[in-house]
Write a protein that binds this DNA or RNA. Structure first.
Lengths: 144, 144
DNA sequence: GTTGATGCAAAATTTTTGCAAGATG
DNA sequence: CATCTTGCAAAAATTTTGCATCAAC
């Protein structure tokens, strides 16, 4: 049985190459938010005939197909995770002390965002919300 | 009388060079969110002895000093605007049809964000919230 | 006068692309 | 077997940096 991502690819008429299958598998397995090079590294460990260029091409493709989401956590490179189905949404808290990423979701927040956009005459088609935080009690003094 | 930005620089013990003064002036005057190259272009029109490298060095410096905010609206380069005083906050709606950026603020949203972070044991020290939108009634079909 | 800032050009980083060769449907 | 995809290496785009010179305090 084909994976969810594989199914999505077929639905869009994309060819299922070995490389795409591997990258999809790596993305599905990832519990974190790897960047392109990390995706490449993990993919290579499954099948070493995958180039970094293909990883870049594939994430762009998967992004267009809404198979994954591209993030930018201010560390200079794009990072990726599988997109969730339907209208679920989560956002990220980035612990600036150590780079740890915590996910959260909040229905009240979803409603409020939509209301704010609607009041200005807009419909949300994409979004980004990141909170850069320190653990409570940790009183600043973060080094570069 | 020195500008607000100039005062902030002095407070941090930074030297007030002609270049920094010009870049500060350009930032203050900007009603939009220029990128480094645009800042350089505008600065050059005031004083053409300013290099792009200095613009990059200066925005990093100003960012550390919380004189400006660095944004990333998914067009590949960083964009800048002066930071507001105190705890005011605004966020951005990006019209994906034409790239137009609309600013908004909402007190309820501020409260909610803080509550969400606090519930997870975090204190917000920085954030980012962007809503990528289409005007209501404009039914998709956005070209690359 | 010291210390920090600048300009220039070269380098670094991340991402994209041309093209010939290979795999997919 | 036509078309799409890949690998490679080169290019592009943005940002950073080394170093000699210059300016601010």
């Amino acid at each position: 049985m084909p994976s969810r991502i594989e199914q999505l690819c077929r639905d869009k008429g994309l060819k299922m190459t070995g490389q795409r299958r591997v990258i999809a598998q790596v993305l599905s397995a990832a519990q974190d938010h790897p960047d392109a090079e990390e995706l490449h590294r993990r993919s290579m460990s499954i099948d070493n005939r995958i180039s970094l260029a293909t990883v870049y091409r594939t994430v762009r493709l998967f992004e267009d197909a809404q198979i994954l989401e591209r993030h930018d956590f201010r560390d200079g490179r794009a990072r990726f995770e599988t997109a969730e189905d339907g209208d679920e949404h989560h956002h990220h808290i980035i612990n600036v002390r150590n780079g740890e990423v915590v996910e959260f979701e909040d229905e009240e927040l979803e409603t409020l965002k939509r209301r704010i956009a609607a009041d200005l005459g807009f419909k949300i088609v994409g979004e980004r919300l990141e909170l850069y935080c320190l653990p409570i009690g940790d009183d600043e003094g973060v080094e570069k």
